[in-house]
Nucleic acid binder design. Structure first.
Lengths: 262, 262
DNA sequence: TCTCTGTTGATACAGTGTATCGTACGGCTA
DNA sequence: TAGCCGTACGATACACTGTATCAACAGAGA
């Protein structure tokens, strides 16, 4: 097999040559992010990115070794959008801010969730994020292992939550999303049609929206008699507010941390 | 755009025709899972699955509407491997068992993590899992919203953890994994080479293994002076046992739940 | 001005998911 | 038993992917 390659972030950026149109790593990544936002992740092909920039496909390989690297950079660009304010005043506030910001980015860029596995958060922005999260415990006398466990758990929760929140087939807004909207674009060309909710649900819950085959299916299954507990819970809770559910879950995790370092 | 399609699980299975070799939905899924286990997810193509079964590619479309559906079924098959024992004796034990089993499945099938986003857990086995998790709170007098939040949080944590645990570029075993091993296969043909750890790490931590470019990079960054907190924590903790880290994070979440339900 | 080095664009290749379509077969009806 | 008809199958084709290869060309240094 081939030589182990250094991570993208570890390789120098090429100069922008003005022929016939300047091209930079940042510009490539921005174009890719734009395509993914508009038309979904499957629409991000090297040919398409290159065309968007008025260049041939192979020119991209001067700035990026392979498509995988471009995806790495997209993920890190998303992390870069996370709003890291001043040093937090207390670990709870700090972690809450980071978690909320990360979740917001994942909603704004629905393709992010699908890239989290396979593209580790070790780019500069990912590291900056980790740094910031760890530093939330700066003043406290807490062992390092406890700090990493706390931060890891929060990040794992947020990542897992967005995976589930952005699942397709989940009951979404009743109207078919407008073509070209992020929700419609998420499945991408060739993806499964049908409403896919961008920011509207939680796990194993939600009402039935007739006309949505996924919701129809869930409703039928719930009524079917298998999964009795699920069915009961399913009807007992109404349409949950995803923001509130996220906050509630985060609260659980933070309470657990509080119990640990209390 | 097209008609909304019903989920795969909602469509009847076709009969197995004995021509020239029987083909069933279950057999197709099993073959796909086998390929993914052996050679990584990118190796799962309809042509390859069909060839494995001694059939032409188009025959698969009699049993599955599109590749996306096949992936749905693979995810549900993985959920089906989760060992659901007798009704748990207490919510904590029940959730712990489910979480551990889910994590074990994700390690056994490293392709699962990459599929979690985009393939919701609404297949029969996923629902069975949810049912089981919810029923862990059966005897207790806890409102439904609390139950769903508790279960959602645990599942989100586990899913997020496996995403991070199975990241490539993470420092792994020092030796290059043998060709054909699951770890080597994970990135798949055309994927980035280099060691990828199957079950060996946690978030934002881990020692430096010279020879591994990803680890080299991390070590250099840690030594670089940016990310001081990260660097300090990085050196302060040794090589963490991923199993212990997972358990610790799960403990945090469960403690948070305990605080919630008093 | 000539050479060299590094970038660009074109071409090519193997492989992908899947639409289309002619054919052949299984089971049902007359 | 003969005929039919719906369905499944296989082959072919298409648009598209990531990327290896290579000829041509630009700018820099001698």
């Amino acid at each position: 097999m081939g030589e182990p390659r250094r991570p993208v972030w570890d390789r120098p950026q090429r100069d922008a040559r003005p022929a016939p149109v300047p091209l930079t790593r940042g510009g490539i990544v921005a174009a890719a992010v734009g395509i993914a936002d508009r038309d979904g992740l499957p629409a991000v092909s090297l040919r398409r990115v290159a065309a968007e920039l008025g260049s041939g496909p192979m020119r991209i390989y001067r700035h990026v070794d392979a498509k995988h690297d471009l995806l790495d950079l997209m993920v890190d660009a998303a992390y870069g959008e996370i709003d890291i304010g001043p040093p937090p005043e207390g670990w709870r506030a700090g972690l809450t801010a980071i978690a909320a910001s990360l979740q917001a980015v994942a909603v704004r860029h629905p393709w992010l969730a699908g890239l989290l596995a396979g593209h580790p958060p070790y780019g500069p922005n990912g590291l900056r994020l980790t740094e910031h999260a760890l530093s939330a415990f700066a003043g406290l006398d807490v062992p390092a292992t406890t700090v990493t466990r706390a931060v890891s758990t929060v990040i794992a929760y947020v990542i897992g939550y967005v995976q589930l929140e952005l699942s397709p087939t989940a009951p979404g807004p009743p109207a078919e999303p407008a073509a070209g909207s992020p929700a419609a674009a998420r499945s991408g060309p060739g993806g499964r049609p049908g409403p896919a909710s961008g920011d509207s649900r939680s796990v194993g819950s939600g009402p039935q929206q007739p006309g949505n085959p996924g919701a129809d299916y869930l409703a039928r299954v719930a009524a079917g008699g298998a999964y009795p507990t699920l069915a009961r819970v399913f009807t007992e809770i109404g349409q949950p507010d995803p923001r509130a559910e996220f906050a509630a879950g985060l609260g659980i995790v933070l309470d657990g941390i509080a119990a640990l370092i209390g």
